[in-house]
Design a protein around this nucleic acid. Structure first.
Length: 423
RNA sequence: GUGGCUAUGGUGCAGCGGCAGCACAUCUGACUGUGGCUCAGAGGGUCGUGGGUUCGAAUCCCACUAGCCACCCCA
């Protein structure tokens, strides 16, 4: 195959959302806007690229994302830019840059859009993937953490997802987490040689990850590892208790899982995951937590924050698995016969569309049979048939596709006829 | 980055040394302007790419590429 006739394909791990799936996406986006709006959130739209340094500092130098998954490039001016691998760093940057962090620190933002991570693609994991996320800034109350979880849970239910469980944990704070890490590391070192190769590596990098290993032997070895809750400081313990209390009061079901870990450095205290068993190995549909030090570390005032991000593709997979068909759209199909009729009908179609009626027709002057077949395939509710006979009488034949009955309507009355029916 | 599986019309698959098929989809038609069901017909593939074995390769062998799934990581 020559370069000239080469067939282009989407870049590995980047996929097209084609109709009719795109409608499901629209519905979910709409649900997100509606639900988040009810909780006082406003949309924020940030650029998809940021200075590389923002993510290095925001996400964490030693995270897998920053170490080997970012799409980083130098632009023509010699600046190092990166396609955003997650949303929080950008939102926090904008929050600081706009001055909101100082003038209006209590802020609720939601966002949706593509994120980029260069991983090996598999089910529920792509290189360009779509996240819906929310950030609640300026509140350290544990009720805020619970409210975020309640909102996500509400949204997931509204979007039609089921079989999702909420798991929560507290990662401690800069005061108490180091103590736990130290104790854990000491414990793990004792049997270092018995762990799997991955865990030996984790042991150095992020000891808490070892607790997360799926390997049975590793799990057995860590069964009596130091427990995170034993190391929480009084403030962290109290905060977490309040989160749980608020969740219960709001009627949000959860399960405490002290082995939940976060892959991004900025999380502290509350960490949570909405997980499912229906997506293969990619079990997290949404995840988030509290990141009180982040705003300050990105150059802003010392303002706390909580947030959550949700994987659109995973949510869609979950909803698609349930196989709920989308209801057909209200559609009117014009079947037109003959050149004269085509031009007579054109302004009528235009008027209807301007009135908000969904109208389809066949550009090619095909047989009535072919046009009817097309109308049926598109699941048109009604078909308007206009040929020379009708033009002569200044009428159209309106056929109801469900009942199969049809009657004549004057051409001049068509706009009114359909607008009344549809709206 | 590592492993396993796969690659044949638009889609889903069969064929596993001897003329490239089926289903769905598409298009046309079934007493001339009426869909779904049925029936008849048509178009559409150098069998992922390159090499090798063979009289002969979609089929066997090798390499490459791509996709999927899993590890890893995460949403």
């Amino acid at each position: 195959m020559t370069e000239h006739q080469r067939k282009f394909t989407a870049i590995k791990g980047m996929v097209d959302v084609m109709p009719p799936a795109s409608r499901l996406w629209q519905n979910i986006e709409e649900a997100a806007r509606r639900v988040f709006g009810c909780y006082g959130y406003s949309e924020i739209r940030t650029p998809v690229t940021e200075p590389t340094e923002l993510f290095r500092r925001g996400v964490g130098e030693t995270t897998a994302i920053v170490e080997k998954e970012m799409y980083t490039f130098e632009d023509q001016g010699g600046d190092s830019l990166t396609l955003r691998p997650e949303g929080t760093a950008s939102v926090v940057r904008a929050y600081i840059e706009s001055g909101a962090a100082i003038s209006d620190p209590l802020a609720r933002y939601y966002y949706m859009g593509p994120m980029f991570r260069r991983e090996r693609p598999q089910k529920g994991r792509q290189r360009q993937f779509y996240q819906v996320g929310c950030e609640l800034m300026g509140v350290d109350s544990p009720i805020a953490d619970a409210e975020v979880m309640a909102m996500i849970s509400h949204f997931l239910a509204d979007a039609g997802a089921s079989d999702i469980a909420l798991e929560i944990n507290s990662l401690g704070c800069p005061d108490c987490r180091p103590l736990f890490n130290k104790a854990l590391l000491e414990f793990l070192k004792k049997s270092e040689s018995k762990f799997c190769a991955d865990c030996v590596r984790r042991l150095e990098r992020n000891p808490m990850r070892v607790l997360d290993c799926k390997n049975e032997e590793c799990r057995a070895l860590t069964r009596h590892a130091p427990a995170l809750p034993e190391y929480w400081c009084a403030a962290c313990r109290e905060h977490f208790d309040e989160v749980k209390r608020a969740l219960s009061i709001m009627g949000v079901e959860y399960r405490e899982n002290n082995r939940i870990v976060r892959g991004l450095d900025y999380y502290m205290r509350t960490a949570f995951e909405f997980t499912t068993t229906k997506l293969g190995s990619q079990n997290a549909v949404a995840a988030g937590g509290r990141y009180d030090g982040l705003v300050k570390s990105l150059g802003g005032p010392d303002v706390p924050g909580v947030g959550c991000a949700l994987g659109m593709e995973r949510l869609i997979l979950l909803i698609e698995q349930k196989g709920i068909p989308l209801p057909p759209l209200d559609l009117i199909f014009f079947a037109v016969l003959g050149e004269r009729a085509r031009y007579e009908v054109l302004p009528i179609i235009q008027t209807l569309r301007k009135d908000g009626v969904r109208v389809e027709w066949d550009f090619a002057a095909r047989s009535l049979k072919a046009q009817m077949r097309r109308a049926d395939k598109l699941k048109a509710e009604q078909v308007v048939i206009v040929g020379d006979d009708e033009i002569a009488k200044c009428v159209a034949v309106v056929k109801d596709m469900r009942s199969g009955t049809q009657h004549e309507v004057r051409l001049a009355d068509l706009p009114q006829h359909f607008v009344q029916i549809d709206i």
